[in-house]
Nucleic acid binder design. Structure first.
Length: 121
DNA sequence: ACTCTGACCCAAA
DNA sequence: ATTTGGGCCAGAG
């Protein structure tokens, strides 16, 4: 989990106090944690930013296995076409959170990536 | 060890 | 707009 002694850093190799590398999972969580409010990023983009190109599926696997959800902004991750991949009750929660922070969606619950897509420095 | 299933993605057709 | 095929691969059974 990001936020317990590990300074967040994207792209390059992040390291822990002990010297061991951060797990792929933690790099993904740290990256999701860095998506700004009001923006959304695709699974593939998160993977790439975490230094794991072509591993979009892993991002889905990791987010899908989240339990408590904590303070992680998981709702800011959508598919590359701007659609919500989350099914079930969590979907409504995602929509609520996105609306609350100003991310608008069309009638088909689709987000304009050109407008709300995260563009990291 | 092996098969199946995904909160995925992209280029082609 | 949809479909197809390939890439990717951690979990669950």
């Amino acid at each position: 989990m990001p936020g317990r002694g590990i300074a967040l850093l994207r792209r390059v190799s992040v390291v822990m106090k002990n010297g061991s590398k951060l797990s792929d999972r933690d790099r993904i969580l740290a990256t999701v944690d860095s998506i700004p409010k009001g923006c959304v990023a695709s699974y593939g983009q998160v993977a790439a930013e975490a230094g794991l190109p072509r591993r979009a599926r892993l991002v889905g696997t990791v987010l899908g296995s989240l339990t408590g959800a904590g303070s992680l902004p998981w709702h800011r991750v959508v598919n590359a076409r701007g659609e919500l991949s989350v099914r079930g009750p969590a979907r409504a929660e995602q929509i609520k959170r996105l609306k609350r922070e100003g991310v608008r969606m069309n009638a088909r619950e689709r987000i304009d990536m050109a407008e709300f897509g995260w563009r990291p420095e």
